[in-house]
């Protein structure tokens, strides 16, 4: 269950950013998850609730954007989105490609936070 370790790293990273921005709490976390990231979406969502407990992220929603594998085919001179991850072959011509454009993402795109506004007159 490596997703728990991934979720813990995610929470640590988001909490640090949120704290630096003066957030009272985090309401949503937007994550890009590549098909070739090797992380299971379901398992990550399951672990997220556990990992966020007693943190600024408690009760927040994890919004995952699935990113399919995209390769650049030298022969077709075009990008191609693959339906699976078992073979990095161009769906048009069948050529293998080592130029991976997308699909390994395990990236925090952004977060939605609640910030307590400074009282009038201060600063």
């Amino acid at each position: 269950m490596h997703e728990l370790a991934i979720a813990a790293a995610l929470v640590e990273s988001v909490a640090a950013s949120a704290q630096a921005a003066g957030a009272a709490r985090v309401t949503r976390v937007f994550l890009k998850l590549g098909a070739l990231s090797g992380v299971s979406k379901e398992a990550l969502l399951f672990c997220y609730d556990v990992a966020t407990r007693d943190t600024l992220l408690e009760g927040s929603q994890l919004v995952i954007e699935d990113v399919p594998v995209t390769i650049y085919c030298e022969r077709c001179r075009a990008e191609a989105i693959l339906s699976g991850i078992q073979g990095l072959r161009c769906p048009r011509c069948g050529e293998l490609s080592s130029r991976l454009l997308h699909g390994k993402e395990l990236e925090i795109a952004g977060i939605e936070i609640d910030v307590i506004e400074e009282a009038e007159g201060e600063r």
């Binding site: 991934i6 790293a9 995610l10 990273s13 988001v14 950013s17 949120a18 921005a21 957030a23 009272a24 309401t27 994550l31 395990l106 990236e107 925090i108 795109a109 952004g110 977060i111 939605e112 936070i113 609640d114 910030v115 307590i116 506004e117």
Partner: peptide, 13 residues
């Protein structure tokens, strides 16, 4: 309290 979006664009690890 205001809600705002903060761009991060950083790997989880």
């Amino acid at each position: 309290m205001t809600t705002r979006y903060l761009e991060i664009r950083q790997g989880v690890l």
